[in-house]
Simulated assay, not measured.
Amino acid sequence: MTAYALAHLRRAPIHAEVLEYLERIQATLVPFGGRFIVHGGPIEVLEGDWPGDLVIIEFPDLSRARSWYGSPTYQEIKPLRTRHLAGEVILVEGVAADHSSSEMAAAIRRADGS
């Protein structure tokens, strides 16, 4: 099942270390089949507040996403970002192509006895 690394990063002045991080991150993704599907860019906020930028990296599965994040090559460059950009980073598994929210609701109702 496809998995994603999502980062919600607060905007900050660009630092030389952040530029180095950007120059080096792609090479850390390749061995794990990772690819950027969102990398900053304009955000249209429809509800609530969204202070910052969004990054989404797609991986073939959660195991490879975890392996990338924990890899020595990524851990080596991570401080270049974390010293200058605050934010949250999560890993999440995607859903199958045939995912149905109504079927999900029905399963929840059955489990709750509703």
Rank of each mutant, 00 (worst) to 15 (best):
T2W: 02
A3N: 09
A3R: 11
A5Y: 01
A7Q: 06
A7N: 01
L9C: 03
L9V: 13
R10H: 14
R11W: 05
R11T: 15
A12E: 14
A12Q: 09
A12F: 12
P13C: 05
I14W: 10
A16E: 15
E17L: 07
V18R: 07
V18F: 12
L19Y: 01
Y21G: 05
Y21L: 07
L22V: 11
L22E: 11
R24C: 11
Q26Y: 07
A27I: 06
L29V: 09
P31F: 07
P31D: 07
P31W: 07
F32G: 03
G34Q: 08
H39A: 15
H39M: 13
H39I: 03
G40T: 08
G41D: 10
I43S: 10
I43V: 15
I43T: 14
V45D: 02
V45T: 15
E47I: 09
G48R: 12
D49A: 08
P51N: 02
D53R: 14
L54W: 04
V55S: 08
I56Y: 08
F59K: 10
D61V: 10
D61P: 12
L62F: 05
L62C: 00
S63T: 12
S63G: 13
R64D: 08
W68H: 15
Y69C: 04
G70P: 00
P72C: 09
P72A: 15
P72G: 12
P72W: 07
T73F: 06
Y74C: 00
Y74G: 05
Y74A: 03
Q75D: 10
Q75F: 12
Q75G: 15
Q75H: 07
E76M: 03
I77G: 04
I77Q: 06
K78R: 11
K78N: 02
K78W: 00
P79G: 05
P79W: 11
L80H: 02
L80Y: 09
T82A: 04
T82E: 01
H84I: 03
A86K: 12
A86P: 01
A86S: 13
G87L: 02
V89M: 15
L91Y: 03
E93Y: 00
G94D: 04
G94M: 06
G94W: 04
G94V: 07
V95Q: 08
V95C: 04
A96F: 04
A97M: 00
A97C: 02
D98T: 14
H99Y: 15
S100E: 02
S101K: 03
E103D: 08
E103S: 04
A105T: 09
A105F: 10
I108M: 13
R109P: 05
R109V: 05
R110G: 09
R110T: 11
A111M: 12
D112A: 15
G113K: 01
S114C: 01
